[in-house]
Design a protein around this nucleic acid. Structure first.
Length: 882
DNA sequence: CCTCTGCGAAGAGGA
């Protein structure tokens, strides 16, 4: 049986004599998840090592535990088959186990500084890709040429020539090919490449290079002339073997493939030059992997920082020694390697510690998302929107590059957060224990089309969580504090006020606040803030600003939280006649009409690198700014849109790359998306600087969207009444202005703002009666001749969005997804009846967004009693009914 | 206790 629970107490290690001789044990008191009282669990032998790291409050799992009775007390104990796992919910990466075995401090440093843009790394990646292709039967030269070309940008930035790289990769790949041929001569081989593995039991995830007859094969581009694989390489492969044991018996061998061995000259090199080194994977090795993984999980649970003393690694042999000493010195951390350099001021170290913790909390939240892959029971699955289940496979076909395209029918009415372009876990039913492949959703309506590496029967699609944005926030924090210049930090940490110079030039002659905003930003020595309420021409202003900066000879980074905002800003820039931009991002992320300026990574190295380095404007999301390619880039000014939706570390990723920065946003609209709910992350850098330096900000106060009647409430509640219509035409906008609308407009539709109480009932997060009424309201406007494309319905919950979507033929979506856009007629469904309990109603900024999407007509549909129960909503009601 | 966009899909190496 498996025993799982929360640790209440960890006893001392003691040695007892048994019929097998003297053995160590530790007694741990655990409150089982399914029980109220604590039970004693005896951890025998080497599991006392895990007990050493365990502490009260941590979760503990013992597999194959046995019930025991000792001196009349009932309890549990480990058996010979048991594994003991600390904090199983914390998902450790296989590569983390590997780096921890090298040195625990290396694990920490890797996390902080990320993977650098370095030639051995890029070359290693290419060799891996070629390896995958060879397994799928592709021609060696074609594969090498293809993957070297695909890495053009990185190779160019590293100053490498394509021919030189091709030769080197081919030498490595030839070793693989030779070895593969050897294998197929002797027996039938069964291969799989790039295998995604997640283990709920052991709390580990990772991606194996390949499986050969069910055993892991790990490719290493380096050399190793010893008979044995390197210990940490072996541990990596053994960890994959452990993961394979999650569904079935673990394989009992692993293979390391050192491709450089084959390229060594036999007459000069000595030792074992065969590239493939097989080793046996016994239970003892697997248990060692689990204990190592437990050290990591326990350290993370304690919120400790590794010092290096945890293991016996020798610092003088370590490649990271210098980095290690610098980080230790700057952050004043205890470290085996010692410290060099000046310690950061205390306020900066505190900031670092605080945000490090917050970002790690966020990582936990991502881990919780992974857990949903296996925790959802069959009944819960039905309403869980993280997955599409019960898909009916419709077929598969092989694509030219060796990938597969899978098709399946989606059941009627299935709702999920999965969208076209998303990465998702495709499976034949059980994403964790059964067949599954990571793929990309190409299209999704009544039929799902997914591309994957290996074919399977597509019966289920799951959201696949990613730690990338968490990792990038961490490296941004590292870069800002440890590499960032002191001048910048003086301003960020309030040791110096930002300075500005006056600019006499007029940039925008028909809007004073927009002009003032550009002037302030252009004249900023450190930073400027542009506060842009709804409809105030934020995007136009940004484009004008970017042009002004470029005209002054500056190189500009144009960034935003979402791809959509980046592309909107680019569109405005291009409308103003400026085309010299490089858009960095994925083909699925970049909007179609901006693909022509997208920087392709594929191509001739020098030419690709020049395309990035010479572009006067580079546009990318802040997440991409934290990528290894853009982390190396430098700019004079970074202009960041949607800055009020970014966490501080998220913003740092962009502004780290520039001398000065301009943040554009509106802290009265939606705040950053933070799953863990951490308050430090939920406050944007934009908002903090806006509070600390009000003079650095210019608010755009003329809006071009809403009629006077519609904007009144938002202006009063959120902008101190300072937000006003830009022109009399905007102020007086009515339905009658729209082409095709009946004349005269029916009286009840001619009101700019209406309130409708359908007397509905909230059921879960939906309200079917209210949805009926919303549909009727939409029908009224359609009947009056309003174009369906001009009508939008907004609801706070996805369940209600689905409910309404079944009844109308106009756009329906959540508030959050409508931020940034607008429509002539907006109908808002509030769902709530009885009271307004729930976080979604607590943040009135969400209401601000909902109400300010409308240009000419706004209809609020909700329960008057419920809305009247909160002062803010009561005021909204008064305004709407007036 | 609800909203949600990012991310080449992770992981690649050096004596």
């Amino acid at each position: 049986m498996n025993l799982r629970g929360t640790i209440l107490d960890v006893g001392e290690v003691r040695s007892v004599s048994t019929r097998h001789g003297n053995r160590d044990l530790v007694e741990v008191t655990v409150r089982p998840d399914d029980g109220a009282d604590g039970v004693t669990v005896t951890l025998w032998g080497k599991w006392t090592h895990t007990a050493d790291h365990a502490a009260a409050g941590m979760d503990l799992l013992v597999t194959d535990a046995e019930e025991t009775e000792f001196r009349g007390e009932q309890g549990y104990a480990t058996t010979g088959d048991s594994y003991v796992v600390i904090e199983p919910d914390f998902l450790v990466d296989v590569t983390d186990v590997r780096s921890w075995v090298q040195c625990p401090r290396m694990y920490y440093l890797n996390k902080l500084s990320g993977v650098p843009l370095a030639y051995p790394v890029v070359k290693g990646t290419i060799v891996h890709e070629v390896f995958g292709d060879l397994l799928r039967g592709r021609d060696l030269d074609a594969a090498v040429a293809d993957h070297v070309e695909a890495a053009g940008l990185e190779l160019g930035l590293l100053g490498r020539e394509a021919s030189e790289v091709r030769d080197e990769v081919r030498r490595n790949a030839a070793a693989i090919e030779g070895w593969l041929e050897q294998g197929t001569l002797t027996e039938e081989d069964d291969w799989r490449s790039e295998y995604t593995l997640i283990s709920p039991t052991f709390g580990i995830k990772g991606r194996a290079d390949a499986l050969r007859r069910g055993s892991p094969v790990e490719l290493k581009t380096g050399k190793n002339t010893k008979r044995e694989p390197r210990f940490h390489d072996k541990i990596q492969a053994a960890t994959y073997a452990l993961l394979l044991g999650e569904s079935g018996d673990p394989p009992n061998t692993g293979t390391l493939l050192y491709t450089k061995n084959a390229a060594l000259d036999r007459s000069e090199a000595s030792g074992d030059l065969s590239p493939a080194k097989e080793f046996s994977v016994g239970r003892g090795l697997l248990a060692f992997v689990v204990r190592t993984r437990n050290e990591i999980a326990a350290m993370e649970a304690r919120r400790d920082v590794p010092t290096g003393y945890e293991a016996d690694a020798k610092c003088e042999w370590c490649f990271e020694q210098d980095t290690c000493m610098v980080v230790s010195g700057r952050l004043d951390q205890e470290s085996k390697a010692g410290q060099v350099g000046t310690t950061l001021p205390e306020v900066e170290r505190d900031y670092f510690a605080e945000f490090y913790r917050a970002v790690e909390d966020e990582r936990r939240a991502v881990h919780d998302e992974y857990r949903k892959l296996w925790e959802q029971t069959a009944t819960e699955r039905a309403d869980a929107d993280r997955a599409l289940i019960d898909l009916e496979p419709l077929g598969r076909r092989e694509l030219s590059g060796g990938d597969w395209e899978l098709r399946a029918r989606v059941p009627d009415g299935a709702v999920s957060k999965l969208r076209e372009g998303d990465v998702a876990l495709a499976s034949s039913g059980d994403p964790v224990h059964g067949e599954s492949e990571l793929g990309r959703i190409r299209s999704l309506d009544d039929e799902a089309v997914v591309t994957v590496d290996e074919p399977l029967d597509l019966r289920r699609l799951d959201v696949y969580p990613s730690e990338i944005s968490v990792s990038r926030q961490l490296t941004a924090l590292h870069d800002a504090l440890l590499k960032g210049d002191s001048d910048r930090k003086d301003v960020l940490f309030g040791r110096r006020a930002p300075t500005f110079s006056d600019t006499p030039e007029t940039f925008i002659d028909n809007n004073e606040s927009q002009n003032a905003a550009v002037q302030r930003a252009v004249g900023a020595a450190d930073f400027a803030l542009i506060h842009g309420p709804p409809g105030t021409g934020k995007t136009y202003t940004i484009a004008r600003l970017v042009r002004a900066l470029v005209e002054r000879g500056e190189r500009v980074l144009l960034s935003a939280f979402t791809n959509r905002a980046v592309d909107n800003a680019l569109e405005a820039l291009r409308e103003q006649g400026f085309e010299d931009v490089a858009r960095v991002g994925t083909t699925t992320g970049v909007r179609e009409d901006m693909l022509d300026v997208r920087l392709d990574r594929r191509g001739e190295p020098n030419e690709r690198a020049a395309a990035l380095r010479s572009a006067p404007v580079v546009a990318a999301t802040t997440a991409t700014c934290g990528s290894r390619v853009l982390r190396e880039a430098e700019f004079d000014t970074a202009v960041v849109d949607e800055a009020s939706q970014l966490t501080e570390p998220g913003t740092l990723a962009a502004i780290n790359l520039a001398e000065r920065f301009v943040l554009v946003g509106d802290h009265q609209q939606l705040p950053p998306v933070v799953q863990s709910g951490d308050e430090r992350l939920a406050t944007s850098l934009f908002e903090r600087l806006h509070d600390e330096h009000p003079d650095a900000a210019v608010m755009l106060d003329r809006q071009y969207r809403m009629s006077q009647r519609i904007q009144a409430f938002a202006s009063r509640e959120f902008y101190d009444g300072a937000l006003r219509p830009a022109t009399p035409e905007v102020a007086g906008g009515t339905l009658a202005d729209l082409p095709g609308v009946v004349d005269p407009v029916p009286t009840h539709l001619s009101r700019g703002v209406r309130f409708v109480d359908p007397d509905g009932r909230r059921e879960g997060n939906a309200n079917p009666i209210e949805a009926d009424r919303v549909a009727a309201v939409v029908e009224e406007y359609l009947d009056a001749g309003v174009d369906p494309d001009d009508i939008v319905v907004i609801a706070p919950f996805r369940a209600q969005v689905a409910e309404i979507g079944r009844r109308v033929d106009v756009a329906v979506d959540t508030v959050d997804r409508f931020q940034g856009s607008s429509a002539e007629v907006v109908v808002v469904s509030f769902v709530a009846t009885d009271d307004l309990d729930g976080p979604i109603f607590e943040d009135t900024r969400r209401v601000n967004v909902a109400l300010t999407r409308a240009k000419r007509a706004l209809v609020l549909v909700g329960d008057a009693d419920a809305l009247g129960s909160e002062p803010f909503y009561a005021r909204m009601l008064d305004w709407a009914r007036r």
